[in-house]
Amino acid sequence: MLELRLVQGSLLKKVLEAIRELVNDANFDCSATGFSLQAMDSSHVALVALLLRSEGFEHYRCDRNISMGMSLNNMAKMLRCAGNDDIITVKGDDGSDTVTFMFESPTQDKISDFEMKLMDIDSEHLGIPEAEYHAIVRMPSAEFARICKDLSSIGDTVVISVTKEGVKFSTKGDIGTANIVCRQNSSVDKPEEATTVEMNEPVSLTFALRYMNSFTKATPLSNQVTISLSNELPVVVEYKIAEMGYVRFYLAPKIEE
């Protein structure tokens, strides 16, 4: 028996919109810790890890660990039927091949339930080792989204370089080149507008912009994005979900031959 009641149902809607471009089908894992997912894109270049901690739900009942395979497109179709202010409850029974999403309007005058078929998904769970990152950049998520979108009209890849000066995003394509430098500005009044750069060692890595742009679908989840970089390791692009957890995207770099 599984019953998860999320008062801020819009969070689940935003989570689905954030990951469904990258991953088609995935197993949602439910345990005492929370509601989580780990999945790779079909080319095994990127990985998404989601955690919604049990404490973030108004009601969280999960009698035993359960894994539910879902088509993210179908799940998004159902969640789009929930209002942005609706309370969403996810219900499942042991051994059932369906999951139910219940939507309650804030005034309780409209209650809907949508039953979705589950699917069997073979997925490999990967161990993600703890890593010391050479550089950690925190910046407004909307700014990062803007940069990825702008650069993808010039080139296909982005070189992200971190130095004492700040973080530089560069691309080149048939029509020319582009460089965008963001400097630290932690003195701004509003913390959500701050850009901070923690650097232990200079880093410069190349990534496919197509994936970066896909990660920025998570922008509505958080005002800030954290980009953790180490030479020749996957970059981690993290969007925190207030008081609940996170969506983390891992992207393997492109290596010079």
Binding site: H44, L126, G127, P234, Y250, L251, A252, K254, I255, E256
Partner: peptide
Amino acid sequence: MNRQKSILSFFQKA
């Protein structure tokens, strides 16, 4: 040319 690495060359199956 840049070669795209796979995520599987960094993270092992758990």
